[in-house]
Amino acid sequence: MKNFLQVIAFSLLMIGFFAAFSNFGIPEIQPAPPPVQEKLDLGAMTPERFITLGEKLFNGKGTCALCHNAVGGRAPPLDRVATLASERLADSRYQGGANDVQGYLVESLVDPSAYVVAGFGKAGSGDTESPMPNAAAGSIGLSEVEVNAVVAYLQDLAGTEVTVEIPKGTEGEATGPEPVTGTARTALASAEEIIDRFGCVACHKLAGKGGEIGPDLTQIGASKDASYLRQAILDPAAEIVEGYPPIMPVTYEVELYAGELELLVQYLAALK
């Protein structure tokens, strides 16, 4: 009986030691909770927010940064990928069906084996097969909107133009424990409201009324097209009209929702 108790006491002591070490000997790290599926108001999406969403997906749900980082060397770095895309499309090893940068980037997420950067293929496949999973399926499972957001982020990262369509109005699914950064307001419904809200006429003349700090916009649609106007609003410093000071705020990229921007651009382009 004595042996019996001694053996039990000894076993308990050892188990206790292992448990104590696991509880107190190492730092207790709380694992991240499983990703929650949550609705996101895509109507309130600006290009800036869309890129931020892409960045968050890149580092979070998309798990891209696990391999595509500067230290791991497991996957090619993506900071310049948008500029390299055209080069890769022309490469004889390219297997996919895309014909522009955006198409290439989207394809690289959903069909990684279409083009494998030299040295990063699965061992033994001679760089024809990528070890990367389809980011739109399986455990990553990015939605179409999310794939676009990541592409937008990659384009912005390389400093190239963001060509993906920013979703407007429709609801989609995106993921994240907290909503996308920034305070949300209800999207404005007409160009007049937008002009009113953002005080454009403080500097610009519209229908003959308004300030003279910026160029007259009364008949702006006659001389400029929509894409010029879009750029002029998002990045005013890109081209300054002769004789005007470069003082237009750069904040509209952040403040205007994509839907509003489109409304405004179409409205202005129609002023002939």
Binding site: A70, V71, P77, L78, D79, R80, D156, L157, V250
Partner: peptide, 22 residues
Amino acid sequence: LRSIHPAPPSSVKIFGKRYDLM
């Protein structure tokens, strides 16, 4: 658990511009 020299992001926005840290 603190890492003093963390891996930098590949690019970062400073002064309203995006810089490629690499």
